[in-house]
Simulated assay, not measured.
Amino acid sequence: MEFDVVQGDIAAQSADALVNAAGTSLEMGSGVAGALKRGAGAGINEEATEKGPVDLGKVAVTDAYDLDAEYVIHAAAMAHYGSGEATRESIRDATRNALERADELGCRSLVIPALGCGVAGFDLVTGAELIGEEIGRYEPETLAEIRFIAYSDDEYETIRAATGTAEPSGMDGESESDR
Rank of each mutant, 00 (worst) to 15 (best):
I73F: 04
L143I: 12
A75N: 06
L130G: 07
S90M: 06
R38K: 14
A162F: 03
R137I: 07
G173K: 00
L36V: 01
E47A: 12
F122T: 01
R96E: 12
Y151Q: 08
S175H: 14
S109A: 10
E141S: 12
E176L: 14
D16E: 03
E2N: 14
A162W: 00
E167Y: 10
E174Q: 13
G84C: 09
V5H: 05
E27K: 14
L56C: 12
L143V: 09
E176H: 14
G39W: 02
F3D: 04
F3S: 05
E100K: 14
T163W: 11
V59Q: 04
N20L: 04
D66N: 15
G173Q: 07
A120W: 03
V125W: 00
I131M: 08
S177T: 12
E100T: 11
S14I: 11
A21S: 10
A94E: 03
A64F: 09
L36P: 00
D93F: 05
L115R: 06
A64T: 04
A17I: 01
I112T: 00
N20Q: 05
D9H: 10
G43L: 13
Y71Q: 06
L56F: 07
D68A: 14
L143P: 03
A144M: 11
G82C: 07
D178M: 13
N45D: 15
A102N: 10
D153W: 03
I159F: 06
S152A: 10
E89A: 12
V32G: 04
D154K: 13
E145G: 05
A17F: 01
A11S: 15
A17R: 05
T158D: 10
G57W: 06
A15T: 04
S152K: 07
A11K: 10
G8M: 05
A162Y: 06
K58N: 11
R147N: 06
I146S: 00
G121Q: 02
S169H: 13
I91R: 06
E155A: 15
